[in-house]
Simulated scan of single mutants.
Amino acid sequence: MFNQSAINFTVLRERAFNLRWASVPSDVIPLTAADPDFPCAPEIAEAIAKYASSRYFSYAPAEGYSFFKEAMANWQNKHRQVPAKAAYLYPVDTAAFGIYNVCKAFLSIGDEAIIFDPVDFLFRYSIETCNAKAVPFSVPLNPETAFDYDALEQLITPNTKMLCLCNPLNPTGKVFTRQELEAIGAIAVKHSLIILSDEIWSDIVFTPHQYVSVAALDEAIRKQTVIVTGFSKSYALAGLRIGVVIAFSEPHYQLLMQASNHQSTIHGSNVFGQVAAATALNDCGYWLSAFITHLQKVRNICVNGLNAIEGVSCFMPQGCYLAFANIEKTGLNSSAMHELLLHKAKVAVVPGLPKWFGEGAAGHIRLSFATSEELVTKAIARINKTISESI
């Protein structure tokens, strides 16, 4: 199911954009955007085809189809021990829009929101688009290292309205423990901060680590929390652009819906995305389980291979199918290493630039290993050869 023969490279070179196969020369291996090389579960394609067979593509409800909302609520209750209610959640056009939606609902001009550094750029982008200020909190690059929660709390001012949690953390692969989340939740409750919990990576967690949602801790923390998640990382549905926002009170839900512009039809979630996501949640657990098992094997190949390269070091990610490698000892910065690997090794990676991850990503490159064992092995061999000959 997740071997080299399962990958259709011809289709990928036609359809996989965003720095991937359709965006790079034919001799380049792209370990860039976090989008699997494997096709989705067959049940998802079958459900979409069945829906399309009627040839009706009418407007969906602004708040989302009931079958999607119920599938998501049931899944959260069963698998996350999060008491989500169908009435308080709704589909969005990507988790990225969901993050912006939450920022728009809860932030005003001059407000501040705390983000991790490094972390995916979408937090900063969304906050600043809402004319608020993103305040970076430097976090350890080693997933095993504890956060300094006193330092986190010291960043809070009267203008601070939100704390942005990315769990697991892109790009370092940290999975937060229950105790760590309790510390974050306590700070949010004490200072009446909204917790924007980005949980798009929450399915991709490697043993022995276990995922805990901050919304599963207690009611006080849950009341401060809004979850944003999606289906691109877990089920290979990036092009269907489907995410979900989960609130835990009627006032928050109404505020979020108003900010979404769904009622005006300016924004909304497409019907195929909702069909696909509901099918994934209801019928494709077996596929996800096999995918994670495969990813754990490929993670080990990728990280161990990187650590065998002179001048390169990489911590083992606890979650996410991302390797965040330190290349400082090679003497090259992130941009120079990106260019070297692209043009000489013929491997595309994401450089650790401020525009992608913040200042804390300097001296690093990020590699996505959501592909076959053979392809990762080939890519690491190319990287090793190039760095050995060039540094």
Results as ranks from 00 to 15, higher is better:
Val175Trp: 08
Gln179Asp: 15
Thr172Ala: 09
Ala183Arg: 11
Gly185Pro: 07
Cys164Gly: 08
Val175Met: 14
Glu180Pro: 00
Val175Lys: 11
Lys161Thr: 11
Pro158Arg: 05
Val175His: 11
Met162Tyr: 04
Gln179Ile: 02
Met162Asp: 06
Leu163Arg: 05
Lys174Ala: 10
Val175Thr: 12
Ile184Lys: 04
Pro168Leu: 15
Pro158Phe: 14
Asn167Thr: 03
Ile187Gly: 09
Leu165Val: 15
Asn159Ile: 01
Ile184Gln: 08
Lys174Met: 07
Thr160Ala: 12
Pro171Phe: 01
Thr160Trp: 09
Pro171Cys: 13
Asn170Arg: 04
Thr160Tyr: 10
Phe176Arg: 04
Ile187Lys: 04
Ile184Met: 15
Leu169Thr: 13
Leu181Gln: 09
Gly185Ser: 01
Lys174Thr: 04
Gln179Phe: 04
Pro158Val: 12
Pro171Gln: 07
Cys164Thr: 14
Leu169Phe: 08
Ile187Trp: 02
Glu182Trp: 02
Glu180Asp: 05
Pro168Glu: 14
Ile184His: 11
Val175Leu: 13
Thr172Met: 03
Cys164Pro: 05
Gly173Phe: 03
Ala183Val: 01
Leu169Ile: 09
Met162Trp: 08
Asn167Phe: 02
Met162Ile: 06
Phe176Ala: 07
Gly185Tyr: 00
Gly185Ala: 07
Asn167Arg: 06
Ile187Gln: 00
Cys166Glu: 12
Ile184Glu: 12
Cys166Val: 14
Gly185Glu: 05
Thr172Asp: 06
Asn170Ile: 13
Ile184Leu: 15
Leu165Phe: 07
Phe176Cys: 03
Met162Gly: 01
Thr177Ile: 03
Thr172Ile: 12
Thr172Phe: 13
Pro158Gln: 11
Leu181Ser: 06
Cys166Asp: 14
Asn170Phe: 12
Leu165Pro: 01
Cys164Glu: 13
Pro171Gly: 09
